[in-house]
Amino acid sequence: MPATGADQHPERPLGYLHDLVLDDSPEELAAHAESFLRAGLAAGDGAVVAAGPRIGPLLREALADDDRVLVLDPATVYRGRTPAAITALRQLAEQHTPAGRRLRVVGETVFGPTPRDWLEWERYEAVINEALRHHPLWGLCVYDTSRLPDEVVATGLATHPYLVTAAGRQANPGYSDPADVLRALPVPDEPLERTEPLLRVDDVADFIGLRHTVGDRLADLGGSPELAEDLHLAIDEMSSNALRHGSRPVQLLLWGSAERVVCRIRDHGPGMDAPFAGYGPAHGADLSRGGMGLWLARQLCDHVDILDEGDGLTVRLVTSLR
């Protein structure tokens, strides 16, 4: 079994630890993960496995003798959209962490099939360093380099403070400040934006009228009514935010087909340099204080991009209606 160095229990306080193991062999990845979890169990930590079909069965077989290990389908953790995954990990920490110890989680992020999907989960790998900072979690992310794209692996190396190798656990010299990683990740091109928009409003004034018009345009596309309603609510929230926090004029552009919808909402306010915005409620658990608009949009849409263009802020919402 490889030496992971993961049996060195870090000093308290018990904040979040975020480790990465890279290998092109599922067997080697599973062996590292087994060593990590067994060391934790011996120290009194909790143990969770959320790994995919190549690594998960190997790890389950290796740990079958210990019923203290909670085995989850990775889709239950990395479900849908990234804010939901952050919430799932917080809930795991609340429900399964032994008193005074950590919860060790072996996770295999489900990056998805397209470069656009990869980007959302690359962002997630940076965001959780901040979003989970005060939670007693110790994550070991397993990256199967035989299957992951080079850009995903490169971002993984920039977003994990520690690497686990055959030589042990060590500080990662390639780790970068998470906010800097988020600022540096590309903003993808959306080809629909080069076509004629279904709707263009250059100075939003009649908010109720806009809400009805957007709803009509989305209904005309013929996609899933539930997904259209989710997007409609996200557009409503982001338009309200632009009017409340930005400066007029507020512009809305909507492009779409039954397959994909893109909406840009732009204000002319001071902009916003807040890379972690919208990955949780702005005021934490106190939802009565508001600050949920961007968080809600990230849960309702496939992709949310924030573009600070110097003379205002643009929020771009992208989702499929299929």
Rank of each mutant, 00 (worst) to 15 (best):
M1F: 12
A3Q: 12
A3D: 04
T4N: 03
D7T: 10
L14M: 02
Y16H: 15
L17H: 06
D24F: 05
A33E: 07
S35R: 14
S35N: 13
F36Q: 08
G40V: 05
L41K: 10
G44C: 03
D45F: 03
V48Q: 03
V49Y: 00
A50I: 04
G56I: 00
P57Y: 01
D66Y: 05
D66N: 12
D67W: 13
V71E: 02
V71S: 13
D73L: 03
I86G: 01
E94K: 09
P98V: 05
A99V: 10
G107A: 10
E108W: 01
G112V: 03
T114H: 08
E120G: 11
W121V: 04
R123I: 05
I128Q: 12
A131Y: 06
L132P: 04
R133V: 14
H134F: 09
L137T: 15
W138G: 02
W138M: 07
C141F: 05
Y143F: 15
D144S: 06
R147G: 10
P149S: 07
P149C: 08
E151H: 15
V153K: 00
G156S: 15
T159D: 10
T159F: 12
P161G: 11
T165W: 02
T165P: 11
A166L: 10
A171W: 03
G174T: 11
S176K: 15
D177P: 06
P178V: 09
V181P: 01
L185E: 06
L185Q: 05
P186T: 01
V187G: 06
E190I: 05
P191D: 09
L192T: 08
T195H: 13
E196I: 03
G209P: 09
L210I: 13
L210F: 13
R211V: 12
H212P: 00
T213P: 00
T213I: 10
R217A: 14
A219Q: 12
D220C: 04
G222H: 13
P225V: 07
E226R: 13
E229S: 15
D230M: 06
H232N: 11
H232F: 10
L233W: 15
A234W: 08
A242M: 08
L243G: 11
H245D: 01
R248A: 13
P249A: 05
V250W: 07
A258D: 14
E259H: 14
V261E: 07
C263V: 15
C263T: 15
D267T: 14
G271S: 04
D273K: 01
A277E: 14
A277I: 13
G280F: 04
G280S: 15
A282Q: 10
D286N: 14
R289E: 03
W295R: 02
W295S: 06
W295P: 00
Q299K: 13
D305E: 09
E309N: 05
G312L: 07
T314E: 12
V315M: 08
L317R: 02
V318W: 01
R322P: 07
